[in-house]
């Protein structure tokens, strides 16, 4: 009833976890049966190990939070040798979020992940607002986005999802550019660039000054963008941004998402993903929907 497909990737249900909010999945193994998830998108992985940004790295804002973690990760080498063995047998789709500061770095990471048998897809992150060079730089111009996706397409042979930045004038234009360059799917949205000031101390809350906004506060923006992109491209769209409930997930699917990811909501309830899956199934039953694919993009 809930099975969906993104290119060659078959998901038991449309619910995946968003990169950077779910670690490598294992952090949540005490709370949920990970095999119930449609997929897990693990933390952004780069060519070399990164320490990430200075701290404080987060602050809570109305119905959301700002973060400036900045791609702290062990690097693709240690990911392959140390992390992959621990997660390769999880009975769900484990997808690696790939980041870089240059086209060469993206290609290097993507090709190393390509060699891992049990990673069926990557999510190419051309939208991180928290790193100075690269990251979002690639995701804010259609030409740059097409260049990096085209280069990765040459070295990566499985399902290629490209994660888009909402910090642009026309997200549909970027989506079309990456579709043209060979992406199999697009996911959106990454965080919205934001800022908050501690007026008592008269300084920004975060050491990095600006950060990425996530959580329920961004949901209407994300739904609008998913809808715009779904009308602009033929490849499947993965929707995310503020999803907390089954109803939120259904809303994204009606707007045009084939699958969805849950991020910040995992912090509030570490078992929220399975509740969303159960809730979607109940919703379908209650509304006489035999196949969730029926509602995708009906708006």
């Amino acid at each position: 009833m809930l099975e969906v497909k993104i290119h060659n990737l078959v998901l038991n249900n449309p619910v995946m976890t968003a990169s950077g909010t779910f670690g490598y999945g294992l952090e949540f193994a005490d709370f949920i049966d990970l095999s119930r998830l449609g997929g897990i998108v693990v933390k952004g992985t780069t060519g070399e190990r990164r320490q990430g940004n200075p701290y404080p790295r987060m602050v809570e804002t109305p119905s959301g939070m700002l973060n400036s973690v900045g791609l702290q990760n062990v690097g693709v080498g240690r990911f392959c040798s140390e992390v992959y063995p621990k997660i390769k047998d999880l009975k769900t789709n484990v997808i690696v979020n790939v980041s870089g500061s240059s086209i060469d770095e993206y290609c290097d990471v993507a090709s190393q992940i390509d060699a891992l048998d049990n990673i069926p897809a990557i999510e190419l992150n051309i939208s991180c607002p928290n790193v100075k060079c690269g990251g979002m730089g690639f995701g804010t111009s259609p030409d740059m986005a097409a260049q990096v996706v085209g280069a990765v397409r040459k070295v990566y042979h499985k399902t290629l999802i490209v994660k888009l930045s909402p910090n642009v004038t026309s997200i549909a234009e970027i989506a079309k550019a990456v579709e043209g360059a060979g992406a199999d799917s697009v996911s959106l949205i990454n965080t919205l660039l934001g800022m908050a000031i501690d007026i008592e101390r008269r300084r920004p809350f975060m050491a990095n000054v600006t950060g990425g906004l996530s959580g329920p506060a961004v949901k209407p923006v994300a739904v609008r963008m998913v809808w715009q992109v779904a009308h602009a491209v033929k490849i499947p769209v993965v929707g995310l941004g503020g999803i907390c409930t089954a109803e939120d997930a259904i809303e994204f699917m009606m707007a045009g998402a084939t699958a969805i990811e849950v991020g910040t909501a995992n912090f509030i309830d570490p078992a929220v993903t399975v509740k969303i899956i159960d809730g979607m199934e109940q919703w379908c039953k209650k509304h006489g929907v035999n196949d969730i694919n029926e509602i995708i993009g009906i708006i």
Binding site: T21, M58, N67, N266, F267, P270
Partner: peptide
């Protein structure tokens, strides 16, 4: 002590150098 989001080592918001 530090500001925290997930509390389980998943988000890397609470690091100390």
């Amino acid at each position: 002590e530090n500001m925290m989001a997930c509390g389980v080592g998943a988000c890397l918001c609470c690091v100390v150098d």
